[in-house]
């Protein structure tokens, strides 16, 4: 009999507490690139404010935004971290679920770096090298042909004679979009391939960004730690990392230059290093009144002490946003995205 009472009491607790489960801590999900920054801020927030430390999930920008657009209410998340801007389709999905009052917060910039094993050759890339090495099909003798390149020195004689193996982020990562846009598409244009494709009547947009599938462009769906493990086991591999991840692993990795520029916070802030992107988080205005501490957390995140130069985020590898003051105003005035 005692077993039965135990069960019923457990169920009773369940039933009564469901209604009363008002939340007092901020819940966040999204980009694994933003995750380390968000945890650093959450930790400092928990230490210095009376509110509890926010709970932060990762899982990728797309997954986070999808969760974010589930609706408004206690059992939906308050903030989605993203390493790219929200897409119109996602805004539409949000609106369908009743999440129409979004505030977009840009927290700073992150560089995307190309790094290889510390014991191997060093590389000086241009976007055109990456396009020629990784494009699925290239124009040869006036026709489209599968990419024949197997060694880096075949695409550019200045590069070392090393097998082409590249670990690029999978499509669920926001980083991939930036990689496609700023490296592969740029390389397609720079190398003149885009013009050649158009003269052939082929769809340049699609041919420029389709990567080869013969095992030389390996998509990594996990985190940068997986990319690092792949390079550990195949020292010919070149991986795509966030600047902060590289800076924490300078013992194992050496970084390649892009267009002759070494990636660093300075070169990314000045715009000399070409492959960088802004990082964002999106917050539901409707939750400001519902979840205590939500606005404090959002404002704390982009305060000068945290996201500004010399702050803990900059220490970790975030490139501070020169227009941080504007972001702070957007949050203070609760300016919605349109």
């Amino acid at each position: 009999m005692s077993r039965i009472t135990l069960t019923t009491s457990a169920l009773a607790i369940l039933a009564t507490s469901t209604a009363a489960a008002a939340r007092d801590q901020v819940q966040v999900a999204g980009s694994s690139t933003v995750l380390p920054y968000a945890t650093i801020v959450a930790e400092l927030f928990g230490e210095n404010f009376d509110h509890p430390t926010p709970v932060i999930e990762s899982g990728g920008s797309s997954a986070g935004l999808k969760k974010f657009c589930d609706g408004v209410g206690d059992n939906t998340i308050d903030i989605a971290n993203a390493s790219r801007r929200i897409k119109p389709a996602e805004i539409a999905a949000c609106e369908v679920a009743g999440v129409s009052e979004l505030i977009e917060v840009r927290i700073g910039y992150d560089g995307i770096v190309f790094a290889s094993d510390i014991g191997g050759e060093s590389f000086a890339f241009t976007p055109a090298d990456w396009y020629k090495a990784l494009a699925a099909e290239i124009v040869q003798d006036g026709r489209l042909a599968p990419n024949p390149a197997t060694m880096w020195n075949e695409v550019n004689p200045d590069l070392p004679a090393q097998e082409i193996v590249a670990f690029v982020p999978g499509t669920k990562h926001g980083t991939r979009e930036v990689f496609d846009l700023k490296v592969i598409e740029q390389g397609c244009k720079d190398s003149g391939a885009a013009a050649e494709l158009e003269s052939l009547g082929a769809d340049a947009g699609r041919h420029c960004t389709s990567l080869r599938t013969d095992g030389r462009a390996v998509e990594i769906d996990g985190d940068y730690t997986e990319t690092l493990a792949r390079i550990d086991s195949n020292t010919d591999g070149i991986g795509v990392f966030g600047l902060s991840f590289y800076e924490n692993n300078t013992v194992k990795l050496q970084v390649a230059t892009m267009n002759g520029v070494v990636p660093s916070a300075e070169t990314i802030a000045s715009g000399n290093y070409p492959v960088s992107r802004p990082l964002y988080f999106y917050v539901k205005q409707a939750h400001f009144d519902m979840v205590p501490g939500l606005k404090d957390y959002a404002e704390f995140f982009v305060s000068d002490d945290i996201a500004g130069p010399g702050g803990p985020l900059a220490d970790y590898g975030l490139v501070p946003d020169p227009e941080l003051a504007e972001t702070q105003e957007i949050l203070a005035d609760e300016v919605l995205m349109n």
């Binding site: 945890t39 709970v55 999930e57 899982g59």
Partner: peptide, 24 residues
Amino acid sequence: LLLIGMVAFVREYPGAPPEGLFDP
């Protein structure tokens, strides 16, 4: 646990049961 949001960065201790069962 991945899908129900438990794969997360959580720094606050959950409270004593039964209320604590609803804390992250």
